[in-house]
Amino acid sequence: MRNSRHGHRNVLAGMVAGLGGALAIGAMEWFSVVAQYPLAVIPFATSIVLVIGSPEAEPAQPRALIGGHVVSALVGLAVLKLLGPHAWAAAAAVGLSILAMYVTGTFHPPAGINPLLVVSGNLPWTFLFVPVLAGAALLAAFALVWHRWVRRQPWPRRWL
């Protein structure tokens, strides 16, 4: 008997998801060149893997995708302002961002690197808008088009 993980349907679904992820990251890279700001500095690749590969998961919903990136970046910016660009402050910011994402209902694991990047890189407040908010919104828009128009499947389960 054939293992269901290797069936033709699952291989095709994996190919479609892989194509979607590659197209999304390619579009993000194109946007970053046009905007002259490197969107790839935050974990959009892992976000798109989650949103395209497991679209039914709670962390793959728009509230978590966009909110998690914004909340975690805000935590990083606040910690940076209060404590400075120290390694211990970056570690504290990651822990606090996990708490903040849980409390706000925006838990999105790939966003956990944002506060580390913000604090360790001593990044400005503008980082919150570009690349964080712009990139997360672009990924949500791509996922919506991908799931509804290409895969002909509903996404998201809910917006908020």
Rank of each mutant, 00 (worst) to 15 (best):
34 V>F: 11
87 A>C: 00
150 V>L: 13
160 L>S: 09
92 A>F: 13
22 A>H: 04
3 N>G: 00
127 F>D: 05
19 L>I: 14
55 P>E: 07
111 A>H: 05
74 L>G: 06
79 V>S: 09
77 L>D: 04
104 T>V: 01
78 A>L: 15
118 V>F: 07
137 A>E: 01
101 M>I: 06
19 L>E: 00
127 F>Y: 15
138 L>Y: 08
84 G>N: 13
10 N>K: 13
79 V>R: 08
92 A>K: 04
56 E>G: 11
67 G>W: 11
108 H>I: 06
19 L>H: 03
152 R>W: 05
142 F>T: 04
5 R>S: 13
67 G>K: 12
48 I>N: 00
24 A>R: 02
87 A>W: 13
48 I>Y: 00
42 I>M: 13
91 A>E: 01
89 A>T: 08
55 P>W: 08
58 E>A: 14
14 G>P: 01
97 S>V: 11
122 N>E: 09
89 A>D: 04
50 L>K: 03
19 L>C: 14
104 T>W: 01
75 V>M: 04
149 W>T: 05
80 L>V: 10
59 P>A: 09
55 P>G: 09
62 P>I: 10
56 E>R: 14
14 G>H: 01
80 L>P: 05
34 V>H: 05
33 V>R: 14
28 M>G: 02
48 I>W: 01
19 L>G: 15
151 R>S: 04
128 L>A: 14
42 I>N: 04
160 L>G: 14
36 Q>T: 12
9 R>P: 00
56 E>Q: 14
144 L>F: 15
60 A>G: 10
109 P>L: 04
107 F>S: 04
106 T>Q: 03
159 W>M: 10
38 P>W: 11
108 H>F: 03
64 A>Y: 07
112 G>Y: 06
22 A>F: 15
133 L>G: 03
41 V>G: 05
59 P>I: 10
59 P>E: 10
22 A>W: 11
72 S>P: 09
104 T>P: 00
2 R>N: 12
25 I>Q: 01
117 L>D: 00
49 V>P: 01
139 L>P: 02
81 K>E: 12
41 V>P: 02
143 A>K: 05
140 A>Y: 02
71 V>C: 10
38 P>C: 04
81 K>R: 15
157 R>A: 15
116 L>E: 04
53 G>E: 08
30 W>M: 10
53 G>V: 11
62 P>Q: 10
81 K>L: 14
135 G>F: 07
153 Q>F: 03
108 H>N: 06
83 L>W: 14
155 W>R: 04
79 V>Y: 10
121 G>H: 05
100 A>E: 11
90 A>F: 06
90 A>P: 02
